Simulated assay, not measured.
Amino acid sequence: MRRAAMAMDISQTGRRESGDDRRLAIAQAARAIIVEKGLEGLRTRDIAARVGINIATLHYHVPSKEALVALVAESLRHDFRAQSLRHPRTGKSGLEQLRLEFDDFRETVVDMPDLIIILTELVERARRDAAIAEIMLPMRDFWRSQFAEIFRLGITDGSFRPDLDPEAAGLISTGALSDCWRQPKLSLSLLDRVAAELERAFIRKS
């Protein structure tokens, strides 16, 4: 049946998309629906219709709800990695890297608000869905660990207080930023003030 479904899609499109292209299209369609209708409104038939495939082909690529959420999460990680590569950290001090993290977050809020909506939906669902939590919690933990590494570097290079706890500072930073993105109408001025207060709390006083 799956081979027949794939053959039908080939005849409809006139060419066979690569597996990566098809999975990317599925992820983008799922993300668009989450933005429009929330995670509760995500339906496989709607995804298939947007991608231009049938349900059997969709299930070939994402056989379960968990596989679909994992695919969406991976597409988010890809976007965040691409953003990070646009702003290299190599050779920068801990303080400079912290400011880049704040700048990246601000850029996401301004230029990629859909990512914030999707993340909020998935994180909220993870609170009551163990399968989704298993997918999303590593993303959260990785984000915190990135901040912790920045604080360790800053302690070493003298940017930050020598008595700073890197793990606690990472939790404080990601917690504050996460709370910002949950605001219904986030003021960029408020976001900038939050970032400034965080920086003041961590830097080494001269």
Rank of each mutant, 00 (worst) to 15 (best):
R16M: 14
R43G: 01
L58D: 04
T57G: 00
A48P: 07
R15A: 13
A48K: 02
Q12Y: 13
I33V: 08
K37V: 03
L58W: 02
L39E: 09
I33P: 04
Q12T: 14
G19S: 11
S64V: 05
R50M: 09
L58H: 04
L42R: 00
V62Q: 09
R43V: 07
A29P: 06
Q12I: 13
V62P: 02
A27F: 09
H59K: 14
R23D: 08
R16H: 10
D9C: 10
H59P: 00
R45C: 07
A49V: 02
T13A: 14
N54M: 03
E36D: 15
R50F: 05
E36Q: 15
S18R: 13
D20W: 12
I26N: 04
V35R: 09
L42I: 05
E66D: 10
R43L: 10
V35A: 11
S11P: 00
A67D: 06
P63T: 02
L24Y: 13
G14E: 11
R16C: 06
I26L: 10
S18H: 10
Q28P: 02
R31V: 08
V51P: 04
L58E: 01
G14N: 11
R15G: 03
V62L: 09
E66C: 01
K65V: 07
G19C: 04
I55P: 00
D46V: 01
A32Y: 05
E66F: 00
A25D: 12
D9N: 13
R15V: 11
D21T: 15
T44I: 09
A25P: 01
K37M: 04
Y60F: 14
G52N: 08
R43C: 05
E17C: 08
D20Q: 14
R22K: 11
L24T: 15
A30Q: 03
E17R: 15
I47L: 02
A27Y: 04
T13R: 15
R16S: 14
G38I: 08
R16P: 06
R15E: 13
R45W: 07
K37Y: 06
R31G: 06
D46F: 00
G14F: 09
E36Y: 08
R43E: 13
L42N: 02
L42H: 02
Q28V: 08
N54A: 06
R31P: 00
V35Y: 02
A30D: 06
K37G: 03
K65G: 04
D20I: 14
R16G: 11
A56E: 11
P63V: 01
G14P: 07
G38A: 08
V51H: 03
D46R: 05
G19M: 05
P63S: 06
T44L: 11
A67V: 02
I33M: 02
R31C: 12
Q28F: 10
I34R: 03
L58Q: 05
G19H: 12
N54T: 09
I55G: 03
I47D: 02
I26M: 06
P63A: 09
A48N: 06
G41I: 07
R22S: 10
G41W: 02
D20H: 12
